[in-house]
Amino acid sequence: MFEARLVQCSMLKKVLEAIKELLNEATFDCSDAGIQLQAMDNSHVSLVSLNLRSDGFDKYRCDRNLSMGINLASMTKIMKCAGNDDVLTIKAQDNADNVMFMFESQNQEKVSDYDMKLINLDQEHLGIPETDYSCIIKMPSGEFARICRDLSQFGESVVISCTKEGVKFSAAGDVGAANIKLAQTANVDKEEEAVTIEMQEPVTLTFACRYLNSFTKATALSPQVQLSMSADVPLVVEYKIGDFGHIRYYLAPKIEE
């Protein structure tokens, strides 16, 4: 038996928004520790890794490990039926071929349940080694989304260049060239507005804009985003999810032949 209760179901709506542009379907692996998901986009250029710890839920029970293969378009249809303030309960029997989503209004006067068929998906995962990154940049997530959106007008690729002075995002194409430089913030009232850089070695890498733009669909999950970079390894774009855990996106760089 699997059962997870979430008082504010808006979190799951935001998670779904954050993954459905990159993934058509995904396996949600449920265990005592929580819910995890790892999946690559169709072209295998990027990878999504989601971790929602069990202690973040208002109630969580998972008697046996359960892998739920879910069509994300179907799940989106169901989650659209929930109000943002509804209380969500997800339930599945062991070895079930369906999962139930129940939405209760705050005053408990309206209760809806939706039964969704599960699908069989390949269960293969990639092993991601622990990496000490040369540069770790933290910045407001809204600022990162804005930069990705603005630069995608100028080219298909963004060059991210990090030194101890700051981080530079550049794009070039038919229109011309664009450069956006962010320095570390000296003083900020709110931690979430800060730009901070931890640098061991300067790094410059090139990435496809359209994936970065897809990652920014997670902006609503966290006021800050963390970019981790080392020479010739995938970029990691991480959004913390409150008391639950995180969503991480890995993106393979473009390299000069």
Binding site: L126, P234, E257
Partner: peptide, 14 residues
């Protein structure tokens, strides 16, 4: 000329 790498250039199946 730039080539787009994939996850498989960096990570192995677990």
């Amino acid at each position: 000329n730039q080539t787009q790498r994939t996850m498989h250039n960096y990570f192995e199946w677990a």
